[in-house]
Amino acid sequence: MSDWAAKRFWKSTAAVETEGGYKIELDGRPVKTPAKVLLVLPTAEMAAAVASEWDAQVDLIDPLTMPVTRGANAAVDKVSVQKDEVVEMLAAYGDSDLLCYRAVGPEELIARQADVWDPLLSWAKTRFDVTLTSAEGVTHVPQNPENLARLHAELDRMTPYQIAAAHDLISLSGSLIIALAVIDGFLSAEQGWDVSRVDENWQFEQWGEDEDARALESIKRQAFHDAAKFYKMAAT
């Protein structure tokens, strides 16, 4: 993103159909990624969102206000050129999924984790025929390779744009299962985020809220929501 011009230099923004999808034109000139590749969006909805982000820039271009553009750039410049490696990295979360590491105490936290996380593991069993093993503490518990292979296959069938969204959903939540539940529509984005924050919310309840921690959480929550929206745009 550092290669972008610092100031707005165009008057008109348009999404234009092209081979393989849609491109964004600024005064008739196509937008390219930071790697200088033509940015081609897979759906009309995503193209409209990217065009809207560019059109909303007033003076200085602020990439932080352009989550759809950033996601599309990542899909083109990063995921598409090394899809196998990215899928492998994301699939590895299944072997250390947040939902599988449970507190050793107190009882209220143990019960809360079970109440919120067990239904998701049951859903994964029904939806993907995947049974993940849970354990107390943080010591790594290896999962069945056959289960991991099924989760890997779910990621591998996604397009680079979908994988770019899945990357953020997984890394922000710490859970491949939560991400897949949001992608599949079993959880809303807000529900998925809340499910991933059981431990943190417990700590806030016990020790009080930390202003800096809450501010960081707000940023991450928004990024999680943005990723969920991006996935839907990519799949339209």
Rank of each mutant, 00 (worst) to 15 (best):
M1Q: 11
D3H: 11
W4G: 01
K7R: 14
K7M: 15
R8L: 08
R8W: 09
K11A: 07
S12P: 00
A14F: 04
A14Y: 06
A14Q: 13
E19G: 03
E19P: 00
G20C: 02
G21W: 03
G21N: 07
I24L: 01
D27F: 05
G28Q: 05
G28E: 08
P34C: 10
L38I: 08
L38Q: 10
A44T: 06
M46Q: 13
A49T: 09
A51L: 06
S52I: 02
E53W: 05
E53Q: 12
D62R: 13
D62C: 03
L64N: 12
M66W: 11
T69V: 07
D77N: 05
D77E: 13
K78S: 05
V79C: 02
D84M: 02
D84N: 05
E85S: 03
E85T: 01
A91I: 07
D97H: 09
L98Q: 10
R102T: 12
E107A: 15
E107W: 10
P119N: 12
P119W: 11
L120N: 04
L120R: 08
W123N: 05
T126N: 12
V130P: 00
E136V: 10
V138W: 14
V141H: 03
N144P: 00
P145W: 10
N147S: 08
L148T: 07
R150G: 01
R150Y: 03
H152S: 03
E154R: 07
L155C: 03
A164G: 01
A165K: 04
H167Q: 13
D168G: 00
L169K: 09
I170R: 02
S171I: 13
S173K: 04
S173N: 06
S175R: 07
L176F: 02
V182K: 06
V182S: 02
I183L: 08
D184R: 09
G192H: 06
D194Q: 09
R197E: 11
R197Y: 05
V198L: 07
F204Q: 10
Q206K: 15
W207A: 13
A213K: 14
L216F: 14
S218F: 09
K220T: 12
K220Y: 14
A223F: 04
Y231A: 07
Y231R: 04
